[in-house]
């Protein structure tokens, strides 16, 4: 808009802003590579004196991270599967019609979207206890977290379906498809990218799920990585290099997926979140 400063100066400012904003991530990786004494150096060093990656293997083994991460994967997969299977069809119908009933359904979905997990956990826990579901704690967490994830998924995927022209489905019907066929062979393939992005987002957020797992899963063998992290995290924690190494192992896969799919995720979000 202004001609006085060049785009390159703006780029430099942007990079500086990004550096400041992403500093916490940098700090996580740097701390994890420092020795136990270097982390308490004053002033702190912004680059480790003797980077030592052994701590990763050490934390991995000592904190039984393979078990924790495996449980995270199981829970996140279950949540994603339920959310995608049930949510996609629901989003499609909510996108296709326009009526008072649809408005009501959308309203209900929006209401569910805003329910905090901390409001739901008490009744869910007591209810699961009554029907005996607490004996299958991971299943219980998957069900609870899928209900939490679904509204957001439906809202985003609905926006994707709205961008698939209605005429394409109608053309397929006239060409000889049933509703089922037109949905699976025309509408779904065209909405595939949006659904995929939303599924990945669902997976990522379920991968980091904490409150339900913490409240419902008692056995360390079944707990996900978030609960594992909370085990040695508290106001008085001190082995920060280990905590940061654990965190780094935990989030690096998510960060990689995000960076690779950044463009798609951002465009998926922007088209859906405001609609």
């Amino acid at each position: 808009m202004t001609r006085t400063y060049t785009p390159w100066a703006l780029l430099a400012i942007a990079l500086a802003l990004a550096a400041v904003y992403l500093f916490p991530l940098y700090w996580m990786y740097v701390t994890s590579l420092k020795s136990g004494s270097e982390i308490f150096a004053n002033p702190p060093s912004f680059w480790p004196a003797a980077p030592n990656a052994n701590i990763y293997a050490d934390v991995w083994a000592r904190r039984t991270m393979s078990t924790f991460l495996w449980n995270s994967v199981i829970i996140a997969s279950g949540v994603t599967a339920i959310t995608v299977i049930l949510g996609t069809g629901c989003a499609y119908v909510l996108a296709r019609y326009r009526s008072a009933w649809i408005d009501l359904g959308l309203f209900a979905i929006l209401m569910l979207q805003v329910l905090p997990a901390s409001v739901m956990i008490t009744p869910l826990f007591v209810g699961f206890n009554q029907i005996g579901l607490l004996n299958y704690p991971r299943t219980a967490v998957v069900l609870a977290a899928a209900a939490k994830a679904m509204p957001f998924f439906v809202v985003l995927v609905r926006a994707t379906f709205m961008s698939v022209p209605r005429e394409l489905e109608e053309a397929a019907l006239v060409d000889g498809n049933s509703r089922v066929g037109a949905f699976f062979f025309i509408v779904l393939p065209l909405a595939r990218n949006g659904i995929l992005v939303c599924a990945i987002l669902t997976f990522m957020s379920a991968f980091g799920e904490y409150i339900y797992s913490k409240s419902i899963i008692q056995s360390p063998l079944l707990q996900p990585a978030s609960v594992g992290l909370s085990g040695f995290l508290g106001p008085n924690s001190s082995d920060w290099n280990a905590i940061m190494a654990y965190s780094a192992i935990y989030v690096t896969p998510i960060l990689l997926v995000f960076v690779i799919l950044q463009r798609r995720i951002v465009s998926g979000l922007t088209s859906g979140a405001l609609k």
Partner: peptide
Amino acid sequence: QKFPGAATIRGLFLVSWVMPGLVVGAI
């Protein structure tokens, strides 16, 4: 503003949003 890489750099900011809350808390 128009400058090279604006959309990409802006997109990078969103990593905070996809990180598990507990890890953000730990950091």
